[in-house]
Design a binder for these strands. Structure first.
Lengths: 380, 380
DNA sequence: GTGAAAGCGCTAACAA
DNA sequence: TTGTTAGCGCTTTCAC
């Protein structure tokens, strides 16, 4: 379109800048910049001339130079374990959607759950002057590198991991309540022996304490641990005993042991009547093993999982699950982040909300994988 | 760690810069920059002093300023329809992995298959001075905005869509060959009436020409059309007739019509013995409908799909599919992009490879959803 | 081998 | 209302 036959276009020259626009409009650089940027004053006439010149030249402001001056890059960072994971890519979409509305863009970096990669990512993103950071931290204890980011005045929101004790805003699902609710459902259907199968971070093995009247799990708030807590809470609330043998916590980096854990549960002298699988990997392992062994769901074994995946409605029976919306979590985290970015450095004066915790509700989707237990139905 | 009790740290001040490092090391800015950047000359001793000072201060070069000077941002853009889609998020991971090796980062932007969004994305990324762009273009005809990017000297690689005719490098799967191979497999198992169920872009409806001896589909190279071509080619090669009623092309933006298309195929007077579903959505629709109607796979109907998804191995029977590795495609696209970025402006002299086309092979995964047809087995 | 200085494109004081 | 000017942090001639 920029067909300007008379003028010789330098062709190989880069994109036009304010100076070019100013020259064409016959005004100074500052005036052109003001007219274009929409700040300061400029007369109607000059405004039009400049706008026209910019249009003709196909002028587009250089964000890099703008960042240099203003310190605002209109870029945020998203640091997660693996963007190809369905949870993170959905969250990413939520983040992108909010960012688009805010005129911002998102740089993604993967950590593969390695602290060193996370530290590198934080450093790199800081050097690019990102306006903010959304992160799913590998560790909830080791967060010096995250503190360095906030220390540099860059807002951070933690996604799916609780870091609010460290004064960092977090957006998490109501893992404990969602799980408790699901277990409650199982109990309501007559199940007394309910197995819990979940993953845990290898570096932070949970300390499970099972007392006569109370059971608890020590350690920080993390989805994997909070779900165990929800399980314990629901059993306690119903006056059911907590049995150690019904709880399997498999290190996240040893996927091969998931199937073993399910098999061990089935091999128990007094096996459970229902399996609660606390994450999608475990749900898949459990479903696969039950299928292979020809164990009828829910006839011989009930199954209830955390996290919804496409396949849970394609297999027969359809699997009942607790769903968390990764998309909504991403949106919420981004919304919170941009609020902090916009906030005029909430440090001075008002006791600013540091370490705010936003909880996204989960939903229970009842399908067909949970059966009714009538009486103590030992030995079929 | 930076425990420097004696010196008063301005605290609220931003990150240290070359000037600070230079001051601490007792040299000039230029010298410090040289020592840190590893270019130009500097004595052993100065080098050490500067490095030490940088370490103490926790100095990290400001990429924004560096970009401004050098024009290299160490950021590339990835423009796709929807990052939460499994194909794109896997491709994204491949891109990120290569980018990491190259010291680069990736900004993702979603288009939802809207040309206007794609145009905006291209403009925005250009204004951020990205070093290159990987894009899955909405349209293979309308690419003025992409030409604008290459015109600005920024390399572009097209992913999953052929744009090499426009002089833009492309990385695509061997859709035609992969499909032909799958259809060939069906024919080898005795199938003569094979249905093709696929999606097409609503704006670019394909012109299907079915002649006596030859059938073809007009239009550009696109995964959706190339798969149809593979289907036609395999039938022709086997001397089988192409029948219009066995080909269903559903507009991509009308998901509701997918199930209708499958149902229509089943309702045919002389129904097919096998269904080839050319994308994951269609495979899902077909599998769901067959399950609901209690039609046995592969007993009463064989099913073979394009694209592998988790669920295809969890359902019974497991679905045979043609797989394309989105991850590999992403890696290949990124590798090609960085090669072009590194190339010293391949315009001058040598006839540079413009519009290079890289084809990533697909694989056929035989599972249990395809049955053997003995004889003309009409009416069971 | 090192330092002084210019400038990438933009914005924000200040002056006119 | 508009123009002049001074940088943001870095790299890169060019003298010394």
């Amino acid at each position: 379109m920029p067909t300007e036959p008379g003028r010789r276009e330098p062709a190989k020259r880069s994109r036009p800048n304010v100076k070019d626009v100013a020259a064409r409009a016959g005004v100074s650089r500052a005036t052109a910049a003001r007219a274009l940027g929409g700040y300061g004053y400029s007369s109607q006439e000059v405004m039009e001339r400049v706008t026209e010149a910019a249009r003709e030249l196909g002028y587009e402001p250089n964000r890099v130079a703008r960042t240099m001056r203003s310190g605002k890059s209109d870029i945020i960072g998203f640091v997660c374990a693996d963007i190809s994971d369905a949870f993170f890519s959905s969250a990413m979409r939520g983040i992108c959607d909010v960012a688009l509305d805010e005129g911002s863009k998102v740089i993604v970096m993967n950590t593969d759950d390695q602290l060193s990669q996370e530290q590198d990512a934080a450093r790199v993103l800081l050097s690019h002057e990102v306006d903010g950071l959304i992160i799913t931290p590998v560790s909830v204890r080791e967060h010096a590198h995250i503190d360095a980011v906030t220390g540099a005045g860059v807002p951070v929101v933690s996604l799916d991991r609780q870091l609010s004790d460290a004064g960092i805003d977090s957006v998490v699902a109501d893992n404990e309540a969602g799980t408790a609710n699901a277990i409650h459902h199982l109990i309501g259907r007559g199940h007394h022996r309910i197995a819990y199968l979940g993953s845990v971070q290898p570096e932070e093995p949970p300390a499970l304490r099972i007392g006569k009247s109370r059971a608890s799990v020590a350690g920080p708030s993390r989805p994997s641990l909070d779900r165990v807590r929800g399980y314990l809470r629901a059993l306690s609330a119903a006056g059911l005993p907590v049995e150690r043998e019904l709880i399997a916590l498999v290190p996240h980096d040893e996927p091969g042991r998931r199937t073993d854990a399910v098999a061990a549960m089935l091999a128990l002298g007094d096996p459970p009547s229902a399996l609660f699988t606390a994450d999608s990997y475990m749900t898949k392992s459990a479903f696969t093993l039950l299928s292979e062994r020809g164990i009828a769901i829910p006839g011989e074994m009930s199954l209830l999982g955390f996290d919804d995946l496409e396949w849970t409605t394609l297999v027969r029976p359809r699997i009942s699950v607790v769903v968390q919306s990764a998309y909504d979590m991403g949106r919420a985290a981004a919304a919170q982040l941009f609020a902090k970015i916009a906030a005029p450095e909430s440090g001075a004066g008002s006791a600013s909300v540091r370490g705010q915790r936003t909880v996204i509700p989960t939903r229970f989707l009842e399908r067909e994988s949970v059966g009714l237990v009538a009486e103590p139905v030992r030995g079929r």
